[in-house]
Computed example of a mutant assay.
Amino acid sequence: MTDIKGMFHQFFVSEDNRDLLRFLWWKDGDPNNKVVDYRMKVHLFGAVSSPGCANFGLKRAADDGEEEFGQQSANFIRNDFYVDDGLKSVATVKEAIDLIQASKSLCASAGLKLHKILSNKKEVLESVPADERITGVKDLDLHVDPLPLERVLGVTWCVESDTFQFRIELRDRPVTRRGILSTVSSIYDPNGYVAPVTLKGKQILQQMCRDKLGWDNPIPESLRPQWEKWRLECVHLEQLKIQRSFKPENFVSIMDAELHHFSDASKEGYGQCSYLRLVNNWKRSLLLRHGKSKGDPTEACDHPKTGIGCSNHVCKNK
């Protein structure tokens, strides 16, 4: 994982467009001086145009530097950045070190600086100067200290165990439709790892909507026990660990990968489940499951012959 330092400020605004970024400020930053009219010469944080312009410049830097610094680093810059945050997995430590060095050089050629570098492999971190590592790792003794918890695009990543985890901080909010919506939405889970859990909270909210309760109406007594039980049980999500890498270390080289998608729906909601099938060069296969849901969660079973799961209520092989 890496970040581009001050990304928006690294790209100039064309001179004929700078009047669109005018602002008033005291001369020389002194409040006792006269207020004068300034124009931003670079893109600023908060402007709707900044992410698009900066991403265009970043991809242009990849195109310009591809011949000198290699296709792998150019593709990383082109395809694996979310605004200024870069995320990439490679097969070996050497590949990671080479990619970091080439990407740093490519960015530097365009006046950009890669920093806040983090890896789940300490050998990779040792190849990076301490001042270019992410803050929580700069002062660590990599031979002794464990790697910390970090956030990756809002998701908690335990770098030492290379797992995704959840930090649950349910604040005391009014037990109203508004408060329940705020509590349920506070569990950030873009990949749907804990969809069967958050689903129950959403169903309670759904019932309040069906009952046409206002935003600040208290929860009905018939739903209160379900809500309190769900809220108490949510703290156990902190014990859950999701392996970041689907591929086990001893699985050798992947020769083929298949995605199998299944979905189902009811009046209570709908669900979707995906299976990743990996085949290595020994013709051994591995089946991994990932799902999302909105509505009643249904348990899944594995067919003894096919190894593909299905909803219990339609399974003929239970």
Rank of each mutant, 00 (worst) to 15 (best):
R231Q: 14
E68L: 13
K202V: 03
S274Y: 01
D98H: 02
L181H: 00
A47I: 07
S14W: 14
D80N: 14
V155P: 15
D264L: 14
L240E: 01
G309M: 03
S89P: 13
Y188M: 07
K122G: 08
I180T: 01
F45G: 13
K283S: 13
H236G: 08
Y270P: 15
G309F: 01
E15S: 09
N55F: 13
E150A: 10
Y270E: 13
P220L: 01
F251N: 13
N317S: 15
G6R: 08
D256F: 06
Q226N: 10
F251E: 11
N191D: 07
L181R: 09
E169R: 14
G6N: 04
V184K: 00
C209R: 15
H115R: 07
S186H: 05
Q101H: 11
M7P: 03
C53M: 12
T198R: 09
Q207A: 01
S253P: 10
E68G: 04
V235Y: 14
E299V: 06
L118A: 07
C158F: 00
F262G: 07
S14K: 15
N32V: 08
V155G: 14
A74P: 03
K316S: 07
S14Y: 13
T135E: 00
C234L: 15
S127I: 11
E123H: 12
F45C: 15
S73F: 08
Y38L: 14
L205W: 00
V48N: 10
Q72M: 12
N32F: 08
G111R: 14
L286A: 10
R171W: 08
E258M: 12
I168A: 13
G136C: 05
W25F: 11
L106V: 03
V175M: 11
M40P: 14
K113M: 12
G154E: 04
F262E: 01
C273G: 05
I204Q: 03
D84N: 04
D84R: 05
